[in-house]
Design a binder for these strands. Structure first.
Length: 129
DNA sequence: CTCCTGACTCAGC
DNA sequence: GGCTGAGCCAGGA
């Protein structure tokens, strides 16, 4: 999708009556489902939740991801360009890319190599279609 | 309570 | 084709 320049419309898989969980909860839930060695973008998660226009909230949610009881792999979540935009928010600015490298993900110039290949779209992977 | 900022994204110029 | 502006929702001051 990220490599899709075409207007690929994401189907709002927003579960009905899911308002029980806060927006953040949903973000954390999806983020924790990211397989090792894979990454996703804020927009993908936001789109999956139905709020693609508010990708900021996804990143903002990540702000509290670390102090959660079950930690969220925020290092697997990057912006739509695959750039480690949030690395500066980690314990150390290098921790994010270090973690990604451990996931066999190549990081060059703060950007994930073969991002399109590593990309993990919840709207597709988690699609019940 | 009001204003501002923020780990993004899209549209416009 | 790169830069700038505006929109998005939520939380903090």
């Amino acid at each position: 999708m990220a490599n899709k320049k075409s207007s690929e419309k994401l189907k709002p898989l927003l579960p009905s009556g899911n308002k029980d969980s806060s927006f953040f909860e949903q973000v954390y839930d999806v983020a924790r489902q990211i397989p090792k060695g894979r990454v996703t973008s804020y927009g993908a998660i936001a789109a999956y939740l139905g709020t693609k226009m508010s990708a900021r909230m996804v990143g903002w949610a990540m702000n509290g991801a670390f102090h959660l009881n079950p930690p969220v792999p925020a290092h697997r979540v990057v912006n739509r360009n695959g750039m480690l935009s949030g690395k500066m928010h980690f314990a150390t600015p290098t921790q994010m890319e270090e973690l990604l490298k451990k996931e066999k993900i190549k990081v060059v110039d703060d950007t994930i190599v073969d991002f399109d290949k590593k990309f993990w779209d919840p709207a597709i992977e988690l699609s019940l279609d």
